[in-house]
Write a protein that binds this DNA or RNA. Sequence first.
DNA 1: CGCCGTATTGAGCGCTCTCAACGAGGGTGG
DNA 2: CCACCCTCGTTGAGAGCGCTCAATACGGCG
Lengths: 238, 238
Amino acid sequence: MNALTKNKITDNLINFHFYSGMRMDSIPENERLELESQAKSIKVSRKSVLYTEGEAPKGIYVLLSGKIKVSQLNVDGSVQIFFIYSTGDLFGHRPLLCNGKHPVTAVALEDCEFLFVEKDHFMRVLESSPRLSNLFLQSVSHEFTVLVNRINIFAQKSIKERLAYFLLILNHKYKLPGQVADAAEIKVNRSDLASYTGTSLENLVRTLKDFKNKNFIRTDGKSIYINDFDSLYSLTGV
Amino acid sequence: MNALTKNKITDNLINFHFYSGMRMDSIPENERLELESQAKSIKVSRKSVLYTEGEAPKGIYVLLSGKIKVSQLNVDGSVQIFFIYSTGDLFGHRPLLCNGKHPVTAVALEDCEFLFVEKDHFMRVLESSPRLSNLFLQSVSHEFTVLVNRINIFAQKSIKERLAYFLLILNHKYKLPGQVADAAEIKVNRSDLASYTGTSLENLVRTLKDFKNKNFIRTDGKSIYINDFDSLYSLTGV
DNA sequence: CGCCGTATTGAGCGCTCTCAACGAGGGTGG
DNA sequence: CCACCCTCGTTGAGAGCGCTCAATACGGCG
């Protein structure tokens, strides 16, 4: 893949489909220090539940290490995963901003460490800083576009197209800090990957196998690595 | 249907799935007057295009009469409709709030009349009013939940479930101001309804027929009326 | 070694799509 | 007024995708 193509993939996906929302390092120093001054550092182990859908939000979270999955459980037992957060991502703020309940459940995919800022402190800092408030407004407005684009993906694309799409997104999420290689080690189990892609476990496995046969990806145990970004990207049709 | 059930439907759908976003009448009077002072009143005929995906946003819109559909066109020619705006809805603001392009295309479904506030004026009013800015932050954060719920619908539900869901949403959108009757005249053509539900035209027609046979809905020419809110609601599984 | 959770594969069914034809209704020109 | 056309809606048939159920393989751990 040449540099031009690569940039196009990166631009399009990151800007309009991927975009992790708010990150701690995009917050101005003053406000960040103010938030951090009252933040608790918390460690949880794999499978821990940070919050559950329907709960009142207690504060905001900044992930320092590990991965968090954010999902909904349907009445028929099916699970839809919406996001996977990685280091630096700030989340859990949106229900606070609109006085709502958590619409989703957040669970640790690995052992995690995060900062937790309590609701009252967060809201105080937010109210005292129009700059921060505008930053959130910008961020959430951008995420609106990201979600609209994702609705289109789910409504109009086949499993194959969707899986290609989500593998590219996960590749970003699983890049290690400072990693130069394009391909990351994607460590999501088949069941979660199926819930993320919106398909059954068996169908997910079959589609992965298809991608492997075409040499788009390779696997090592349960881990997935992308070989051919270009082909996956053109498959997505975005 | 008893009153309790009806309220549950209304509450759940309106709050978490429907929610039309910002409305002019939820803006504090001062700011509203300031916005309106520079607003142009514009009339367009059916099928007129207000803006196209990829375009730079020029301002915000407040619908006074008529209906607007908001959609994306895919490379394979398929169309996904995301929203249908009706009287009072304020839209087109989100790309302004995050310095982005329009992610979607807005087209008049009927002859429409709307207010248009130019970008510069809107941004000036917004910057001068933390209260307005916070209102938008609240609104867009709430819409985040709405869109997340909708992703779940598209990723996990069948056409039948999705159509039941969107018919209930459209029923709200097509209620006339002050209408007491529950059932509105839903005047969306089959093709648009298919694009909204995320299915093919033929399949949409077949599912409508199924609903008609079960007496969930009735049709009069091209218009659709809901008979049985309860059954449709329980079909959606939300 | 046996157990348990996860991954893979197979078979068959049903939903949804596409292609194709037909019908209904409104508008236009002869 | 009628004939024609154009758009939109409806129906049928058949193919293929994606689902469920069921069985098998694999790997870590007690």
